[in-house]
Amino acid sequence: MEGWIALYIFMLAAFTGIEVIRRVPAILHTPLMSGSNFIHGIVVVGGMVVLGMADTTAEIVVGFIAVFLGAGNAVGGYVVTDRMLEMFKSSDKTKDKG
């Protein structure tokens, strides 16, 4: 990938990340950390690509580990976040604050 374009993507994504979190109330810090933990589970896609390209035994083993760990990150991260957010659902009073 063209280096400068990558740098631009890097910069814009960093600002997006900062903006997204800026106005988050303290009560959502743990769910948010958990949610962002889920989102970097997208690394599983990278794992799949390298496993798909792997030829030697060593490459296949390490690639398998990459997919396994990445999938664990994504699914575990999702379920943990979902369970946390489930708790906010029950009380309707949440609507006036937020």
């Binding site: 990558a6 993507i9 994504a13 600002f15 900062i18 948010l32 962002s36 970097h40 997208i42 690509v49």
Partner: peptide, 21 residues
């Protein structure tokens, strides 16, 4: 490295948000 911009964006957004947090 893998030339998947979606990974870059998701990763960096989390990296920046996580650093702020």
């Amino acid at each position: 490295v893998l030339e998947i911009p979606a990974l870059m964006i998701a990763g960096i957004v989390v990296g920046a948000a996580g650093t702020m947090l």
